[in-house]
C-alpha cells in the first residue's frame, strides 16, 4: 500500500513536472546543450485608418517537443530599400504570441507599393535566432448603408495606395461581409467589387443585433497575395433587437433557489399541526409529573 502511494506521488510529481509547457526564456540552463530550433510565424492584418496589426508566434522545437516560448523579445521591423527600421519590440505571452499595432503612415514601400514586415527573435544563450517576413500592400475597406424603397443596401468601397501614395480603387476582388459574434464571425454575404472598387449587397433580414438592434458589420479581403488581410467596419441599427432569454412558460420553477409558495405554506401548516400535537402530548406528560408532586405535598 505504502509502496503504491509513493509510486503515486512520484507519478503525480512527474505529471506535474511535465505540465508547464511555457518555458520562461531565461530558465532551464541545463537544457542549453540540447539542440534547440526556434520558429516564428507572422500574422498580418490591415485595419482602418492605415493601422496594421502584426502577430508573431514563437515556438521552439527540442527533441520532438514543440513548445511556446513565453516572455521572449520579438522585434518588429519594416524592411526598406536601403535600411531596415525597427518599429517596435514586444514580449511574447504564455501562448508564445507577440502582438503589435502601429500606423503605416510614412513607412517605406517598394516600387509596387508593397511594405515588407519582419519579425525577428535575436539569439540568446540557449536559443538560436530566427526571423520571418511578409509583404503586403496597404489597403482600406469602407462600408456605407442606404435604404431605397425599403430595401436596405450595404455598399462597400475598396481602395489601395500605390507607390506614389495615391489612393486608387481595388477592382475585381471578393469581399466577405461578416457580423462579429461571441466566438466567431457570422458571414452574411459576399460582394464582388466592380472596376471602381465598389460593390453592394442587399442586407439580410433577421440578423440579431444588440438590444437596440445595433450591428457591427465587417467587410474583409482575406488571404490575398497582394493585400493580405484587410478589414473595414461600420455600425448600423439594422439588426433585430436582441431578446434576452426568459424561461419558457409554463415554468414549474422548481429549479429556482426559492420553492413555490404553495409548497412552503403546505409545509409550514403541516409541521405546525403535527408539532402542536406533539407539544400537547409533552404538556400532558409535564402535567402528570406536576400532579405527582402535588400528591407528595399533600400526604
Amino acid at each position: 500500500m505504502k509502496k503504491y502511494n509513493s509510486f503515486l506521488t512520484i507519478l503525480v510529481l512527474f505529471i506535474a513536472m511535465m505540465q508547464p509547457h511555457n518555458l520562461k526564456a531565461e530558465e532551464n540552463l541545463d537544457s542549453a546543450n540540447i539542440y534547440t530550433e526556434t520558429k516564428l510565424t507572422l500574422g498580418y492584418f490591415c485595419g482602418p485608418q492605415d493601422s496594421v496589426y502584426l502577430t508573431a508566434t514563437l515556438l521552439i522545437k527540442r527533441e520532438e517537443n514543440t513548445l511556446a516560448l513565453e516572455d521572449a523579445q520579438v522585434e518588429f521591423i519594416v524592411i526598406g530599400e536601403t535600411s531596415n527600421k525597427v518599429i517596435g519590440t514586444v514580449n511574447t505571452n504564455q501562448e508564445g504570441i507577440a502582438k503589435f499595432t502601429f500606423s503605416i503612415t510614412g513607412l517605406p514601400t517598394n516600387k509596387d507599393g508593397m511594405i515588407s514586415y519582419m519579425a525577428k527573435f535575436a539569439e540568446t544563450l540557449k536559443y538560436p535566432a530566427t526571423e520571418v517576413s511578409f509583404s503586403a500592400k496597404p489597403a482600406s475597406l469602407k462600408l456605407f448603408f442606404s435604404v431605397e424603397d425599403s430595401v436596405k443596401t450595404l455598399r462597400v468601397t475598396a481602395t489601395q495606395k500605390n507607390a506614389k501614395r495615391e489612393v486608387i480603387p481595388i477592382s475585381k476582388e471578393t469581399v466577405m461581409i461578416y457580423v462579429p459574434r461571441l466566438f466567431s464571425l457570422l458571414k452574411i454575404g459576399e460582394i464582388s467589387l466592380d472596376e471602381t472598387g465598389t460593390g453592394t449587397l442587399e442586407f439580410p433580414k433577421e440578423i440579431v443585433g444588440d438590444t437596440l438592434g445595433n450591428l457591427i458589420v465587417m467587410a474583409r479581403i482575406e488571404e490575398h497575395d497582394v493585400y493580405g488581410f484587410v478589414e473595414g467596419k461600420n455600425t448600423i441599427n439594422w439588426g433585430v433587437p436582441k431578446q434576452y432569454y426568459k424561461a419558457e412558460v409554463p415554468s414549474r420553477e422548481l429549479w429556482t433557489p426559492i420553492a413555490p409558495m404553495w409548497m412552503i405554506i403546505t409545509l409550514i401548516v403541516m409541521l405546525l399541526g403535527v408539532w402542536a400535537h406533539y407539544f400537547y402530548a409533552v404538556y400532558e406528560l409535564i402535567m402528570i409529573k406536576r400532579l405527582s408532586k402535588k400528591n407528595i405535598n399533600l400526604f
Partner: peptide, 17 residues
Amino acid sequence: KGLLAGAGIAAGGGLVS
C-alpha cells in the same frame, strides 16, 4: 488560415490557442 490571419480574428480569440 487562422494562423496566417493572426489576430485578425478579433472575435475568435480561441483560434490561435
